[in-house]
């Protein structure tokens, strides 16, 4: 059926779905998102300690999806007309992808300040999926 986030894969990193969690590297002090695998800064393994960042950051890249979204986003796209998706560089220096919320995505761009909030993403296989979205400050 293609690539989507199955329920077991969803449960595996549930902790990082209901709150924003990044990994702090015990080797180099850098941060990695998500908090698993090798450190993106220094490639150290087994060195990431999960930690909750402030959740504040700056938009470094943006897109507005107007068509071609995968089926799990169809309902949202139909309702909203467009989905703003940003890469945010958190103040800790790590980048996190997320949807924009509580705004018109056309009003947001690179350099704008945002804060992470937990929101409903979509429902699939009978489970409502939650995750981090970003709200303009």
């Amino acid at each position: 059926m293609g690539a989507y986030l199955s329920v077991p894969a969803w449960w595996r990193n549930l902790d990082g779905r209901y709150r924003l969690v990044v990994g702090e590297c015990q080797e180099c002090g850098g941060y990695t998102f998500p908090a698993e695998g090798a450190c993106v800064e220094c490639n150290a393994i087994d060195a990431l300690t999960p930690t909750e960042p402030e959740g504040t950051g700056t938009v470094v890249a943006q897109t507005i999806i107007e068509s071609g979204a995968p089926p799990e986003f169809t309902t949202l796209l139909d309702a909203e007309g467009a989905i703003g998706v940003v890469l945010v560089e958190l103040d800790e220096g790590v980048r996190v992808p997320g949807m924009l919320t509580d705004c018109d995505p056309h009003d947001i761009g690179r350099g704008d300040r945002v804060t992470a909030v937990v929101r409903r993403i979509y429902e699939q296989e009978g489970i409502t999926r939650y995750g981090t979205k970003f709200r303009p400050d």
């Binding site: 690539a3 897109t63 995968p70």
Partner: peptide, 28 residues
């Protein structure tokens, strides 16, 4: 079915969950 295959080569667990399509990553 076609649309389940869109973006299968993007990062599935977080990038796709953020609503980023394959075109969306290049758009960023």
């Amino acid at each position: 079915r076609t649309r389940y295959w869109l973006g299968v080569s993007g990062e599935t667990e977080w990038e796709r969950m953020a609503g980023t399509t394959f075109a969306g990553v290049y758009a960023q």
